[in-house]
Design a protein around this nucleic acid. Structure first.
Lengths: 208, 208
DNA sequence: ATGAAACATGAATCAGTATTCATGTTTATC
DNA sequence: GATAAACATGAATACTGATTCATGTTTCAT
C-alpha cells in the first residue's frame, strides 16, 4: 500500500525482520550498507558485529532486530551483488542484436560496476567459504544466462559452434579475472583498454 | 652438511622451527598434510588447530613446535600450491616450441593437477582473505611467466599482437574458471573436453 | 651409557565476539 | 493524549578456539 514496500511479500528464507516503518527501513539500510563496507574491507571473520553497528551508528543489539545472524547479512549482500550486476548488464546490452557486440558492452558494464563496488566483488569471492550455496547460486544463475545467449547466437550463425557450457564458464572467467585486476590488484588501466583487448581475444583468438 | 637440509638456509620469514631429526621431519609433514585436508574441507576459520592435530594424530601443543601460528601453516600451503603447480606446468610444456601448443598442454596439466588437489585449489582462493600477500604473490608470479611467454610468442610471430598483460590475466582467468568447474562445481566433464573447447576459443575466438 | 637437545603432551589460559535480554524511547493509530 | 507496536540500547552471557606452559619422553653424539 505504501510507497515502496512491495518486495516484502515474496521472501524465501524467513529473514530476520522486515522493518515496518520508515525509521526501521532507514536503520536496516544503514546496517546493510555498513556491513558492505566493513566486510568488504576486513573480510567476514574480522568484521565483528560491533564494527558493523558502530560504522552504521547504531547499538549492537539493533543489528539483531533486522538480521538473525551475521551470516544472514552476508548472504543478503551476495544476493544484492547478483541482482545489481545482472541488472547493469541487462540494461547495458538492451537491444543489441549481435552477440559479439553484446559481449563487449556487457563486459564493459561488468567491469565498471565492479570498479564502482569493490567491496561487493570481494564479498562474492568470500562467499565460497562463508555461504557456498549463495556462491553457487550467483555463478550458476550467471552461467545459465550466458549459456542460453551463446546457444541462440550459435543458432543465428553469429558465432562458431562449440560447447556452450564450457564457453560460458571460460568467458565468465575472463570477466572475473579482469575484475580482479581492478579490485584486488588495483590496476589503473582504463576499463576500455581491458575490454578492447579481451574482446579481441574473445572474437579472434590468439592465432596470427 | 647432512643429506637433505639445504633449504633451511635461505628461509625468508623466520618460520616456526625446522625439524632437526627424521622424527621431527615426519611429524611436521604429517601436520602440514592434515592441515591441507582439514583447511581445504572446512575452510580456514572452521578448521581449528584441534581438528588439524587430531587429523594428524598428534597433540595440540605439537603444532606449535613447527608453526608459529595458524596463519603460518596456511601460508606455507599457498606457497606449496604455487611451487607444485608451476612445476607441473613447466614439466608438461618442456620443449614445446609453439606457444599455442604449449597453451593447450599447460592448461591440461593445470586442470589435472587441480582435479587431483582440490584442497590446495580452495586454499589459494581463500588466501585472498587470510593471507593477501601470499595470494598476490601466487598470481603475480604466474602472470609474470605468462606475460613473458606471450611476448616471446608474439615476437616469433606465433600469435597475434596484443596487450600481453591483459591477455595473461584473461588466459589465467579461463584456466581458473575451468578449475573451479572441476573442484567447486564438481563437474564430471573429462579434462580433455574442457581443454579442447578452451583451446579452440583461445586460438580462434568466437567469430564464425 | 649418559646428558643435552629435540620432540611430544594436553590441560590451562586468555581474549574475542556472536548473540540475548531487560529496559527504555519513538512512532503511529484511535 | 493514550496505548500498543515498533524500534533502540548496551551491558551481560556464553562459548569457541588460538596459544602457552610445565612436564614427560625420545633421539643421538660422545
Amino acid at each position: 500500500m505504501s510507497t515502496s514496500a512491495g518486495q516484502a511479500e515474496a521472501q524465501q528464507k524467513a529473514p530476520g525482520n522486515q522493518p515496518k516503518t520508515a525509521r526501521g527501513e532507514a536503520t536496516r539500510r544503514s546496517i546493510l550498507s555498513a556491513a558492505e563496507r566493513v566486510i568488504g574491507a576486513k573480510g567476514y571473520n574480522d568484521a565483528s558485529i560491533g564494527h558493523i553497528t558502530s560504522e552504521a551508528g547504531v547499538a549492537q543489539g539493533t543489528f539483531y532486530i533486522y538480521f538473525k545472524t551475521k551470516e544472514e547479512v552476508f548472504s543478503e549482500l551476495v544476493l544484492e551483488m547478483g541482482r545489481l550486476v545482472r541488472h547493469k548488464i541487462a540494461e547495458a546490452t538492451q537491444g543489441i542484436e549481435n552477440r559479439l557486440d553484446a559481449e563487449k558492452v556487457g563486459l564493459k558494464a561488468f567491469l565498471e560496476f565492479v570498479r564502482a563496488h569493490p567491496d561487493l566483488y570481494r564479498i562474492v569471492q568470500e562467499a565460497l567459504f562463508v555461504d557456498p550455496d549463495a556462491y553457487e547460486a550467483y555463478y550458476t544463475t550467471f552461467a545459465d544466462g550466458y549459456r542460453s545467449g551463446l546457444s541462440a547466437a550459435a543458432e543465428a550463425g553469429q558465432i562458431s559452434e562449440g560447447d556452450v557450457e564450457t564457453r560460458a564458464w571460460a568467458l565468465m572467467g575472463i570477466a572475473r579475472a579482469l575484475g580482479e585486476q581492478l579490485v584486488v590488484f588495483k590496476s589503473e588501466k582504463p576499463v576500455q583498454e581491458l575490454v578492447d583487448c579481451a574482446y579481441d581475444l574473445i572474437a579472434n583468438g590468439l592465432k596470427p
